[in-house]
Write a protein that binds this DNA or RNA. Structure first.
Length: 568
DNA sequence: GATGACTGCCC
DNA sequence: ATTCTGC
DNA sequence: GCAGAATGGGCAGTCATC
């Protein structure tokens, strides 16, 4: 077949065809489309782009931010025929001082980014830009809109409570339980139509008909339309007990019939971004929170707000106690949020970047350099700011860790192509003498460590061996390591695993144990492999974790084989 | 209809 | 999700 | 301080195959 030059439109149409093709025979159909695309490529560059696009691995350093900056520049310089917005000529821009030019660019970028964060859809943004260019009006024409999800505000990681208290010194803040569930953005319009979106803006309305049916009841009389955010958590309707994240994941996702739902949920709301036709993003968090709590109606075990306490840095004891109560009731930790905008601040343009605002050392007596920017209490979509802080037990150096043995690895991809990544780790079973796989790990290693690791476990050396009979693992790494060292690993939770063999037979006959969010901390130079964590100990930790979450319940026996908690 | 490889999306 | 790196 | 990259466990859902 003769190659036909690829065009942007043509490739896009092919990708669309692949995306919508389904049902019996669809796989072959998709294959044909891919073959055709590859036949039509001219040269290695084109085929590389096609292949990487298909495997969702383009990695050319040009994603969202780059696109938005490029759009801002494009509409600063140029406009389509017939459009009547002002643009700057190259000569005009060239005459500006360096800082002034940067300010012009920056202003345009912030407008485009703000629009996209509130209304993340290029199909709406670009037509609007073509019509009016980069102006403040963009945020009106292409801004917050019901049934279009905005990008969520994110929290920064904080190592421990004392770091948090230091960062928020001098400010009123609130500490909220960080429930272990799924983030949800709930939209409701005047007519009562409801849409629910996930953290990554997937429409999951269909997954939660029970939440949809709840909306008329939680919406107080004075509420017509709203956008509200919260955490959906599996909750036992009999006891009100919070259930583990894994329970929530057992829910069906498609064609969910409200009558057959087995896993019930509660929505714990924590923010309100829009109310009765008005965006609330520029209101203080204290005000937004007050609106939720005064205008919405709680329903036991179905809808409420997150548990919280208000505090200042002087209340370290109360905060510590609150944190402990959160982790004791199966929460991941707490979220800490600034309640008000700094009183002395003249920073009243929440849509603008906080980045280049004048420093306010007097409102932040904390840091040594005194160079902190004022923390905002406004809702900043798509930003990970220090005005929202995540504190989790497992971030802290004082949290529980495991000492595992690296037993194998795979060839890395992309920037890790020269190294072993991920790496397979095991616990030891002193009864059988075997090593039982627990998890793969690819996080926490520096490039330098990777290089040293690759040098140590070189193919052909004595440290790389053929499949050892004493390692229990169903899969097949690219290389097996001669077990010889112990690595300290951090993790958030221990999970019952369908794929790993660690502690198999101790907690379940079919399933082993694995780790949620595993990451490397350091080599335990002081330990030999016969001092590594044992499967017994791992099972003990798992039971401890399970009991902690069960302790409210009165009599049930030990968490038994495999299913147990999944069946109700 | 059951099984298993694979995908897409939660964290 | 977490983490490291380069700008 | 931010963007980008490389990947973790594990679930329901999809499709091919037996």
């Amino acid at each position: 077949m003769k190659p036909r030059p690829l065009t942007v439109k043509g490739v896009y149409q092919s990708l669309q065809k692949i995306a919508i093709s389904k049902g019996t025979g669809s796989q072959e159909n998709k294959q044909r489309i891919v073959e055709k695309l590859l036949q039509d490529t001219r040269g290695a560059e084109e085929s590389r782009y096609i292949v990487r696009t298909l495997v969702q691995n383009l990695r050319i350093g040009a994603v969202k931010t780059t696109m938005l900056i490029a759009l801002a520049r494009a509409f600063l310089y140029s406009k389509p025929d017939g459009a009547d917005f002002a643009i700057r000529s190259q000569q005009e821009l060239a005459r500006l001082k360096k800082e002034d030019l940067a300010a012009v660019y920056n202003n345009a970028e912030e407008i485009v980014k703000a629009s996209y964060a509130r209304h993340p859809d290029y199909n709406d943004l670009i037509p609007c830009l073509l019509e009016i260019g980069v102006t403040e009006e963009l945020l009106v024409r292409c801004g917050l809109q019901l049934h279009i999800p905005l990008r969520p505000m994110l929290g920064s990681i904080t190592r421990d409570l004392s770091e948090m208290l230091t960062k928020l010194q001098g400010r009123d803040f609130t500490c909220e339980y960080k429930y272990d569930g799924q983030r949800a953005q709930v939209h409701c319009d005047e007519a009562g139509k409801v849409s629910i979106f996930s953290r990554h803006l997937e429409n999951m309305t269909e997954k939660y008909p029970d939440l949809v049916s709840l909306v008329p009841q939680i919406r107080g009389e004075s509420v017509s339309s709203f956008i509200l955010e919260g955490e959906v958590v599996a909750v036992d309707q009999g006891t009100g007990e919070l259930q583990a994240f894994q329970v929530l994941t057992n829910r069906a996702k498609k064609n969910v019939d409200i009558g057959t739902i087995k896993i019930n949920v509660c929505l714990f709301s924590f923010d309100l971004m829009y109310l009765n036709g008005t965006p609330l993003l520029d209101r203080s968090f204290r005000e937004r929170r007050e609106l939720i709590r005064s205008l919405f109606v709680e329903i036991p075990n179905r809808f409420t707000w997150v548990k919280s306490i208000d505090a200042t840095s002087a209340d370290s004891e109360a905060v510590l106690e609150f944190f402990k109560s959160a982790t004791d009731t199966k929460c991941e930790g707490i979220m800490v949020k600034v309640l008000d905008n700094a009183s002395k601040s003249n920073n009243l343009e929440p849509l603008e970047t906080p980045n280049n605002d004048i420093d306010k050392p007097e409102s932040n007596p904390n840091t040594k350099g005194g160079r902190r920017k004022a923390l905002l209490s406004t809702y900043e979509p798509d930003k990970r700011l220090e005005s929202w802080l995540k504190v989790k037990k497992d971030y802290s150096t004082s949290s529980e860790t495991l000492d595992l043995i690296p037993v194998g690895g795979w060839h890395g991809q992309g920037r890790k192509a020269k190294w072993w990544s991920p790496i397979l780790l095991a616990v030891r079973n002193p009864e059988t003498g075997s090593l039982e796989a627990v998890t793969k790990c690819m996080s926490g290693f520096t490039d330098k460590f990777y290089q040293a690791n690759k040098d140590k476990y070189t193919e052909g050396s004595a440290n790389v061996i053929s499949r050892p009979s004493y390692v229990e693992y169903y899969g097949e790494p690219d290389v097996w390591f001669e077990p010889q060292e112990v690595w300290e690993m951090a993790f958030a939770d221990i999970t019952l695993s369908p794929t790993y063999t660690a502690a198999i037979g101790l907690v379940s006959d079919e399933r082993g144990l694995s780790l949620r969010f595993p990451r490397f901390l350091r080599v335990r130079e002081d330990k030999s492999i016969d001092e590594a964590t044992t499967s017994d100990y791992l099972a003990l930790l798992w039971r401890k974790q399970f009991e902690r979450s069960q302790k409210e319940e009165s009599g049930p026996s030990a968490p038994d084989a495999g299913l147990g908690w999944q069946e109700e």
